[in-house]
């Protein structure tokens, strides 16, 4: 209960804070819209020349693109700002201040700041999502809708856990920015159809760098597309990455000596 109240307070405080910088609104939302538009043009141009990408039609791929974007924006909107701030907190010692609070430290650093611009930008992929749903004449039962939501939020959690794991390395390494950037670059390609991966690379991109899981699994489920065993890899990734990230975070905290020493 305490945590629900905390989240509400943080949401409110962030909202008031953002109202002070209204000029940023168009720039931030515009950036997201432009990236998304370019991604649509990218796939549109490919399908102009080729009828399918490894068994994925244009509408299916656009559905995948929208799901991928929804997952990324949810992560960026709810947790991304907090996670990417961690290396700075550790380096400058400002983490001390947060550790004093009587709240779970992982919770506090993660929910540090809600990025409303990313959440508002969700309207672009959502519009594409519903358009694709209509064009593909897909209907989902209530149970399937909940399952799809579970898969999407599971993906957000996986994305969050992998990020937290990487930035937690900043307790030992001074420069994790490059690693974090590399991770973001690779994960930004989660909107490519899973059929491009085969063999060892498929295993690697499912279990080690779970980019196949975070967008292709929810999208395939919604599209009623066969993707092999669906829930097992998702549960595996959620549990393993969630645990690894939390373990490393606390292990790092023990290693952390604060600003004074």
């Amino acid at each position: 209960m305490k945590y629900v109240r905390l989240v509400r307070l943080l949401l409110k405080q962030n909202f008031l804070r953002e109202l002070n910088f209204r000029g940023n609104f168009f720039l931030a939302v515009g950036t997201n819209a432009l990236w998304f538009l370019i991604a649509i043009i990218f796939f549109g141009a490919i399908y102009l020349q080729s009828p399918s990408i490894g068994g994925w039609s244009m509408d299916e791929t656009l559905m995948l693109l929208s799901v991928s974007e929804i997952v990324h924006l949810l992560y960026k909107g709810l947790l991304g700002k907090g996670v990417s701030r961690i290396p700075d907190l550790v380096r400058t010692g400002r983490l001390d201040h947060l550790l004093l609070k009587p709240v779970d430290s992982q919770f506090l650093v993660s929910f540090y700041r809600v990025d409303y611009y990313s959440l508002i930008s969700l309207i672009f992929p959502l519009a594409l999502f519903f358009r694709s749903l209509e064009r593909l004449t897909i209907s989902l039962t209530v149970g399937q809708i909940f399952a799809a939501l579970a898969l999407i939020f599971g993906s957000v959690f996986i994305l969050y856990s992998v990020s937290l794991f990487i930035v937690s390395l900043s307790f030992w390494l001074t420069q994790v920015y490059a690693l974090h950037a590399l991770f973001q670059e690779v994960f930004s390609l989660s909107n490519y159809p899973e059929s491009i991966y085969s063999g060892l690379l498929r295993i690697a991109f499912t279990f080690v760098f779970p980019i196949v899981i975070i967008a292709n699994y929810p999208a395939s489920f919604i599209l009623h597309k066969h993707i092999g065993v669906l829930w097992l890899p998702v549960l595996f990734a959620v549990c393993v990455w969630g645990l690894l990230a939390r373990r490393l975070w606390f292990y790092g905290l023990r290693h952390y000596s604060g600003a004074s020493s």
Partner: peptide
């Protein structure tokens, strides 16, 4: 390091295009 950051996603890009050229 920074060039690896730029180049690593290339492997996924190449896989995508390999797949696109499967049929044509």
């Amino acid at each position: 390091v920074s060039f690896i950051v730029v180049a690593a996603p290339l492997i996924i890009v190449l896989l995508l295009w390999e797949t696109i050229y499967d049929q044509q």
